[in-house]
Amino acid sequence: MNMNDYKNKRVPPDWCPGCGNFAQLSAITMALAELKIDPKDVVVASGIGCSSNMPEFLNTYGFHGLHGRLVPFAAGVKWANSKLTVIAYGGDGDGFFEGTQHFYHTAKRNVDITYMVSDNQVFGLTTGQASPTAPIGLRTKTTPDGNIETPFNPIAFALNAGATFVARAFSGDVKHLKDITVRAIKHKGFSFIDVISPCVTWNKENSYEYFRPRVYHLENNDVTNFDQAYKLAFEWGDHIPIGVFYEVERPTYEDLDEVLKDGPLVEQKVHTLTEEDLEEFA
């Protein structure tokens, strides 16, 4: 298998030339190829937004659902069939506005899925409004005088929620993004990757050129040290860490649930109701 085996040959990506999403498409397909996961065993679920068109361009099982609701959908898939590799892929508007509570609670439950967010600080598909991660001062269609709202911090939020794998990557560094993706998929539990993914059309202020000199690779951090990870989560500006902030092992929801721990639900027998079962109601 190579990365092209994971791509839908009928449908080429429709993103703007230079869009960060191309890097994620490459990283996901390269990671799956490297991990030798059969395309039939992969589900990529998305919400609504530019980035969420991703499943259309893949030759895996895909589901392009509702804005903000990709994470519960993905959890449903995983709970139905824990043998599948489930990747939820969406945008920052999608995941950090409408999907916030789903993100929080699914991370808290430690459902074994990978959640990758293409974070460009704006709404792209709806033509350039400020998103929850928009920095103070960002001028967009909805913030003509500059954004005044404190930006959402995805890394700190994921850590607070109890995600067991928390990372940041950058679309301008595909090799690193791919490596992080491989680690995230391999991680057993809820893996979160926030990808700084410049929007070349609607966010001219936060471009590849802006981020490239500022990002640096996390290398010698202790990924099991929560306090250190939390501190790093607030490092932003001239120095922006990318890499794995936090990674620990904790039983997944599927490991702990009385029914799910007996194996993939889809392979479990359906209960046949008998007269004996009705005796309970006598």
Partner: peptide, 13 residues
């Protein structure tokens, strides 16, 4: 959305 995911994956939810 969770039960839609499960039904999609072949389980009656």
């Amino acid at each position: 959305n969770t039960v839609i995911g499960a039904n999609y994956a072949g389980v009656r939810a």
